[in-house]
Write a protein that binds this DNA or RNA. Structure first.
Lengths: 338, 338
DNA sequence: CTGAAAGCGCTTACAG
DNA sequence: CTGAAAGCGCTTACAG
């Protein structure tokens, strides 16, 4: 591996002149010298060592993507299509700015701090904040700029990118109301504990209230996790004397599970029951009929998070901000007009 | 940020003694000294700098996951559920061995070399090799151990983990044959150019041959990409006077598209047409009926790739090997008995 | 426009 | 069991 020293020797200049060329310090090197040095660098396919630079500049160009581990050693958050999109966009957006994505799954704040200190990460992005205490502690103790997705506290300085969850729940419910439904249920993964889900639920309540409808407690399903959770909701529905005509789910996968559970037991979607999902993720287009769902602009969200992080990295005073991204409804085939 | 120097000063020892503690060099430090040093390290939450270590040891503990960019700037290979699983497992397996995953999308071999040189990556894993010339060149020029997934050449030393693609195509077709089908089509993304797909296709041909059935050219669909490709296959099917009773797809998403295209046009699955997918990825359980598909053991594949990489990292002579992982059939609801 | 010196935070021989 | 010295590959002031 060729080093700056050898390049300098062959060019007959000092190492620092080569360094100036590498870092494009303007007006520091004469055009002829620069040209000569560049040719030699090309000839040897010279690439500066990130480790050596990092040691000097205190900037590693590493951005950590923080993925919390929930229960099992491998909860595999990346398996969530939303996460896969996000990480994919981060990688693309960051690499184009010469920053690199390092994945970091963690169980507690200490893990993150070890990661940051060890790699000298220039910044970190936390996905899926699930425990408010952890998120708070992280925001306070992080050693480099942190952007949190989908969670924000006003009482602690932090950078967050969220979406209009409440509006999302509202437009989902409003849509089925406008289609003539009045008996509308809600299925969510953790209405009580997940801020995102509870906001979506509130939005659903907002819409019902607008129509002076009292939510039927039996039609609110909590703790419905992923596809299986949705299937269980469908099974519960099948056993009811009086069923809702529509269900709003807090997540596409739950909605897909509801569809599957119904379809496997002779109920048609949307004929017998209408379903609305949330996220507009890949499962929503795979099922038949395609799922009507609340769309979040994942790409824009990723761009926004990266912008925030970059700004925070250059401005030490920028440590508190909240961007809330819009959502809209994608109408497909899972809602019937009554 | 506290450094080894300060720890040493506070402990009243030299930096190298601290270094020996950090690296657990046995029999080099007295128990009392070690205890004293460890307490001071804990007190300051000391974490050694990866950059500094990397500079000395020539080992960065970075493993690059190479994701080729096909057409658009963001082909987003991670969006593929299979890729998401893989990367997720890699992250978990590697982090437990104190290695870290860095994502690296690339358009050509030179990009990879720049990445390797810059970060001094200890190893790289290439996913989705799509261009044999690129894969060959990469295998020859890589600057650190490389494990390629799903592609192997015998004439160049390389480390690969593949799966029994041909067997997969065979057991898929064999299954529908055993269920009484005789008119069986095949839908693939790139039968000609993708080695993986062509092997799966060959397996399908093997099974037909075993039953002395000549494949019907009109029922072989090439260039079916992802869900939409499957929908197009379904549309083509709908327009046929004589249709196959079963279709083997080279990928779950294509199978899901076929199902969707049929179901949206009044054909039932498996009533009117049976479908078999490949990969046993998440879409296969989301659709109704759930998809019968060829399962590949992604987790085992990931473990195998990591083992290979680790071995190659410590043994410079280990540069050529091929592991072929088994596959099996997961019978669900998308195949009817005739 | 160019260079000599010092230093980033570690580890690696080599002595003792 | 412990240490002084040199060095990994760069960059950062400071001179000239």
């Amino acid at each position: 591996m060729v080093t700056i020293k050898e390049i300098a020797a062959e060019a007959g200049v000092s190492r620092m002149t080569v360094s100036n060329v590498i870092n494009s310090v303007r007006g520091k090197v004469s055009p002829e010298t620069e040209k000569r040095i560049r040719e030699i660098m090309d000839k040897y396919h010279y690439v500066p060592s990130r480790a050596a630079r990092s040691l000097n500049t205190k900037s590693s160009h590493i951005i950590g993507i923080l993925l919390p581990i929930w229960n099992a050693p491998s909860s595999g958050l990346l398996l969530n299509p939303y996460a896969a999109f996000m990480v994919s966009y981060f990688e693309e957006l960051l690499q184009s700015r010469d920053y690199y994505v390092m994945l970091c799954s963690f169980s507690n704040v200490e893990d993150v701090l070890l990661f940051q200190r060890g790699w000298h990460a220039d910044g970190v992005i936390q996905m899926f904040p699930h425990d408010d205490a952890v998120t708070r502690e992280l925001a306070e103790r992080t050693e480099s700029p942190l952007v949190v997705l989908d969670r924000h506290f006003n009482d602690v300085p932090m950078l967050s990118v969220c979406i209009e969850d409440r509006k999302g729940g509202y437009i989902a419910a409003k849509h089925v109301l406008e289609e003539g439904h009045r008996d509308i249920g809600f299925a969510g993964s953790a209405i009580e504990t997940s801020c995102v889900v509870s906001e979506r639920y509130r939005g659903y309540l907002d819409a019902l209230e607008e129509y002076h409808i009292r939510p039927e407690p039996a039609w609110t399903f909590d703790h419905a996790y992923r596809l299986e959770g949705g299937v269980q909701v469908a099974n519960a529905l099948l056993g009811m004397k009086r069923r809702p005509t529509a269900i709003i789910a807090s997540e596409d996968l739950i909605a897909c599970g509801i569809m599957q559970g119904c379809q496997e037991n002779g109920l048609t979607v949307p004929g017998d029951i209408s379903v609305v999902g949330f996220d507009n993720s890949s499962p929503s287009t795979i099922v038949t009929p395609r799922l009507t769902t609340v769309n979040q602009f994942i790409r824009k969200k990723a761009e926004c998070a990266v912008e925030m992080l970059m700004r925070a990295m250059e401005d030490p005073d920028y440590r508190s901000d909240l961007k809330v991204m819009d959502v809209d409804l994608v109408k497909r085939g899972s809602v019937a007009r009554l």
